[in-house]
Design a binder for these strands. Sequence first.
DNA 1: CCAATATGTAAAAAATATATTACATTTAGT
DNA 2: ACTAAATGTAATATATTTTTTACATATTGG
Lengths: 64, 64
Amino acid sequence: MKTKIREFRKEQKITQEELAAIVDVTRQTINSLEQGKYNPSLELAYKITKALNKDKIEDVFIMD
Amino acid sequence: MKTKIREFRKEQKITQEELAAIVDVTRQTINSLEQGKYNPSLELAYKITKALNKDKIEDVFIMD
DNA sequence: CCAATATGTAAAAAATATATTACATTTAGT
DNA sequence: ACTAAATGTAATATATTTTTTACATATTGG
C-alpha cells in the first residue's frame, strides 16, 4: 500500500506536525504512514483524506 | 462509524463466513464489524468494499 | 418438527497500530 | 555558514484490532 500523503500535504503547504495535529495523531504516525510503514485504521485514513481536501480515501491511499 | 456490510452482503447472497473467507479474516471479525464494534484497518475495509462490489470505501463505511 | 446452517457473543491470546521519548540528519531562511 | 525548523529513525510502551476457541441462539429447508 502506497500513499500520496506527502505529495498532497506539500500541496497544502503544511508540515507533518501540523497534519498530525489536525488529525489528532503524533508526528511519528504521519511520518511512518508517508513512508508506507503500515496500514492505518480506517478512521485515520478518513481523517487524513479530509485534512488533505480529497474526496475519496482511494485518492490518497493506493492499494496494491 | 456505521457500515452497510450486512445490507450489501445480503444483496450478494453470501454468508458472514463466505465473506470472511473472501477477505481472509475470521467470521467473528465480519460479525463484529457488521455490528460496528470497531474500526477496521484500511486494508480490510478496502478488501470488504471490493468483495461487495462497491466502488468506494465510503459507500460501505459511513463515518460520523 | 428436525437437522443443518447461520448468526451472536465472550474471554483470552496474538498481532498490529499508535504514542512516547529522544536524538540524528536534512532542509530552508537569513 | 549559521540557526531554526522539518524530517528520519529507533526502542519501548500502550491501545486496538484480529484470531482462536467455544458455546448459545436463531433461521432455514426438508
